[in-house]
Every structure is written in C-alpha cells, then in structure tokens.
Design a binder for these strands. Structure first.
Lengths: 226, 226
DNA sequence: CCGACGCTTCGGCGGGCGCCGAACTCTCGC
DNA sequence: GCGAGAGTTCGGCGCCCGCCGAAGCGTCGG
C-alpha cells in the first residue's frame, strides 16, 4: 500500500493549473474568466483545467449567475498545498503596476454595475446592521425610507424588469454584497454624489474624501478598515 | 509573487516517479536498480527519472561502489510530501506475496555475498560493541581470535585479492554493515553452520533456530528486535 | 586482464495532453 | 424577444516527454 502522488501532482504539473491554484491559495473565490486571465490562457482552456481540478478534488465551484466562482475545495487541501509550497520555487512578480492594480481591485470595485469588493461587503453589512434589509436582501421600511432620503429612487428600481435586489457572492471576501437594480441605483447615486470615482482601467473604484464621510454616516462603513 | 507548483509537481506527475518517491518516504536508501523494479520500468528509464528528481531537489544520491543509493533530499522534503500525501489517493498493495517478500527482505538479506538488512547491521553493531572491529572495519586482535574460534579463516581473507573488510551502506537501515572478503566469509560460515538459509527467491535469508541462538551468543544479536 | 554487473547516456518511437478556435448554452440587462 | 457576455464542449493540431533498446562507463570479483 502506498501513496499515488501522481494523480494529484498531474493536476498541478502545468503552469496554467499551477497559477490557478496559486491564485486561489489566498482563499478567494475567482471566476473562470479571471482565472483564464491570470493563467494566460483562453477561456476554453481554463475551463478544461478547472473541470479537471474540480474532478480531482482540489477545487470546488459555486454558480453565481453567469459566473462560476472557483475556490480551494477545503481546509485540508489548502493546508496540504501550503506545506507543498515550501519545496516549490517562487515565481517573480510580473510587474509593480499589476500588483498595485490588484490591491486597488481588492478594496473597491464594481461587479457589472454595483459595488463589490471589501467596500460592497461592508456596505451590505452596514445596511443589515441598521435593519435596512435582511440577509436575503429583503428591503425593510426603514431601509426604503433612508435610501429615499439619500436620493435613491427605490420605486423606480421596483418597476424595472431587472431583479430588484439580490445577494451576490464577492470573490475577494467570500461574502455577500448587494446586487440587482437596487445595488446599481445605489452605486449610481454614489458616483453622482462624488463618493467614488471610476478608476482608469476597468472596474476599480477610488473612494473620495466626501465618500469616506458619507459612507461612515449613512452606511456605518469605516473605510480605514477595508 | 507566487508559488510555482508546476516545477515540483511535474517531478511527481508520472506513476514511475510517484512510486519512487513513495518508496523513499520511509526514509530508506534505495539503489537505482531496486527503484526500477519497484517502479516497473527499465533501468535506463529510472535513471532519467532519478536524475530529474535529484536535479529538482527532491532526492539526494550517495555513491557506494557500483551502486547509487537514492533517498529523500531532506527533512523538509519529507515533511512537505507527507502533507501532500494527505490529499493523494492510496494505491492498493500489489499482492500479498510481494508484501511478505518485502518484509522478509527488510529483515535479512544478502548483498552480493555478505549479510545485509537489519541482521547485517545488528551483527556489525554487535562486533563493534565487543571491540572485534571499529567503525571503519579495522579488525582488532580480539575480533580475529573470536572469528577464528567460530571457524572463519581470517588469514585466507587477508590473502584474497579482494578487499579484506569494508563498510557497506545498507539501504533499509541507513546504516553500515560489514562487506568485503571477511563479510563474505562470515556469511558462508553462517550458512555452513545452518544459522541462515537462503530463501527461494533471490537474496532473502531465513534465520533458523540455531541461528537465533548462535547470533545471540557470538554477535550479541537479539533477532526478536529485528 | 577479463567478464559480470550496475548505472547512465543517447536516439528514436509513440501516446498523451495542453492549447486554441468555433460552436453551443445559459444568464443578464434592456 | 434580443444582443452581449461568461462559460463549456468539441475537434484538431503540435509538442512534449515517458518509455525502450543499444552502447558506453565505472566498479567489483576472480
């Protein structure tokens, strides 16, 4: 009786798969497309790799709308890989610019049209703590009133054919944040108020000084903790 | 900055290499030919694998005559592999017969023409403890006299063109045992006395009841501890 | 010196598989 | 219903590499 290292090692033995696992070692949830970009391969290729990794028990996947978020299958896998990493070489950081961009994304970013990242999660927590809505994104009267005071047209959101308010899994935080028409309206409102500014590239957001004050006052978010 | 799992995983990603590492996980030293047999490939093939594993830092090699003994490169490698093994499946034991044979080999076997295995090491320890010879296989007067009493023709061994007495690394014990002409003569004497019998297949030895007594009396070997 | 043996190197073969592009499915937002 | 976008499946291409046999090298025993 022995150990079949080959079965699992095969799953890590290619640069693309190694990059995938490495990216997930932080415990984050990452979508297939994001992993394809990280690994530097086409979506079709990463899809096959991800299927193999899930089949091999290293990764688990959760469906979220048209995204599929992949993460390490469990604590035992993470621990084994961490120990294994001690005898593996390090890959150099690709570029400082990329590194800075990644950190910016982690803190605040948009997911389609609503706020995600640490900020999105913190805002969701703040709204739940103030009983504006519950964990399932059911909006309470107090929440509707306060959002109205803030300038969000909740009624218009309800009339939209789009789903009104729904939870959305955030991959950097393994936590939920608010999506749907309401999430989009709040985000639009924040941009109109100058609380956040869109970064130059893609989905990153920058929080302004007014945003820091307003987020603390209305959403009980301490941006220093993000 | 990330971890390049692929570089090391590649080294384990084939059944032959996996079998090699698995066999060495016990901490033993194994010769290339033995590893080829275990892995089920030709010597030329295993040689390439072993070179890659050494080059990759997983294995280290020590030259011993015309043998080359391979072992895990260090404690860190062993620890990492042990952790990694927790997420790897187990290979079924190939056959009961093979398993029994392996255990027999571990305890007592011949290495060319002298006794190796746990028995060889224990006999070596017993002779050193009684000051028959030192760690470098330098034979003392008391050793020469006692061996003569046992029936070993030490003088003939000296006259042989073959190396008189030399230490030989045992792969199951990571310890030295006695080789050379003297080791061969002692082994021959033990067989003549009926202390040990050659197994049916190859190098395995079976210790008889008289052997148990004689080994205890002359070499201070407790065969129950083997 | 010679043959036997263990191990390595080299050349060549063959299968596996990592990659891609194209087509398809499903969700989302309008 | 429709277009856009994310993800998967499928077919095919190319290359890597695991395997072997033959030859070469070093060691051992006689």
């Amino acid at each position: 009786m022995g150990t079949d290292f080959a079965a699992v090692a095969r799953l890590l033995a290619t640069p693309a798969r190694s990059a995938v696992v490495d990216a997930l070692m932080s415990g984050r949830h990452l979508a297939a497309g994001e992993l394809a970009r990280i690994a530097g391969v086409r979506p079709s290729t990463i899809s096959e790799h991800l299927a193999a990794l899930v089949d091999g028990g290293l990764l688990s996947v959760v469906n979220a709308g048209r995204h599929r978020y992949y993460t390490l299958a469990g604590q035992d896998v993470a621990a084994a890989l961490e120990a294994f990493a001690r005898i593996c070489p390090s890959t150099p950081v690709r570029s400082l610019r990329e590194s800075v961009g990644a950190k910016s994304l982690r803190v605040a970013r948009t997911c389609y049209d609503h706020v995600a990242g640490a900020l999105g999660v913190a805002m969701f927590d703040g709204m739940v703590a103030q009983s504006w809505l519950d964990e399932d994104c059911k909006l309470a009267d107090v929440g509707e009133r306060r959002l109205g005071e803030l300038g969000v047209d909740v009624a218009a959101c309800r009339q939209s054919r789009r789903q009104f308010a729904r939870p959305c899994l955030d991959w950097t935080q393994r936590r939920m944040h608010l999506a749907g028409a309401l999430g989009a309206a709040i985000t639009q409102n924040m941009q109109d108020r100058g609380w956040v500014e869109a970064g130059r590239t893609g989905r990153a957001l920058r929080i302004t000084d007014q945003g820091a004050d307003g987020l603390g006052e209305w959403f009980r978010v301490d941006i220093r903790s993000l």
